[in-house]
Design a protein around this nucleic acid. Sequence first.
DNA 1: TTGTCATTTCGGAAAATCTCGTTATGATCG
DNA 2: CGATCATAACGAGATTTTCCGAAATGACAA
Lengths: 100, 100
Amino acid sequence: MATIDVLKVLASEPRLRILQWLKEPNRHFSPHDGVDMIEIGVCVSQVAQKLDMTQSTASQYLTMLLRAGLLTTERIGKYTYYKRNEVAIARFAEAMAKEL
Amino acid sequence: MATIDVLKVLASEPRLRILQWLKEPNRHFSPHDGVDMIEIGVCVSQVAQKLDMTQSTASQYLTMLLRAGLLTTERIGKYTYYKRNEVAIARFAEAMAKEL
DNA sequence: TTGTCATTTCGGAAAATCTCGTTATGATCG
DNA sequence: CGATCATAACGAGATTTTCCGAAATGACAA
């Protein structure tokens, strides 16, 4: 995905916040039983609640961050967990420092 | 200016291009007589022509980049020259790498 | 001063984005 | 299977952004 398209995804307060919350999920979300939020991630409804927006909106935002390559996802049972893609995020930060 | 607001300014193809063109102004613009584009910068009309947009639009975009702190400006005679603020740009790239 | 040129500001139409409610899909449980 | 729950996809109204043309500002030159 091109730099400009990633920038467009990031240039939104709620989406940027999601990415930042996920740096320390334990600080910002209450965990599901037996789920390590750092290893597995956080599910859509948890993000929706924290955003104070509908589940529909949270799902869209997470999908946008996913398509931008900044998150990864894993489905476990009925839940879909999202977490940061640290490698891709670091790569993007480097690209910014170079291209900007 | 907050990170999110700078991101919004950058998340636009024409504005991002302006910033990138200004990395090598001699490669992208034809100079005014006796004006060192690296030292002094590039004027609004030059950018408008390169963008293939009106001078009004170019002026607005340059102003947005200026307010974001990414450019500096200097008026000489009837021309207003804009150039990159390398220190601020580097600072922003660092902030991104940290906050992202 | 008057005229001209570069730039900025203002107002608005078209396009894009935001965010929602609703519906559809997929998975689990009884 | 049928019911339920989490998520994704769809469609739409409200808001924001984009980009323009016209009018205002500021600087120089005659």
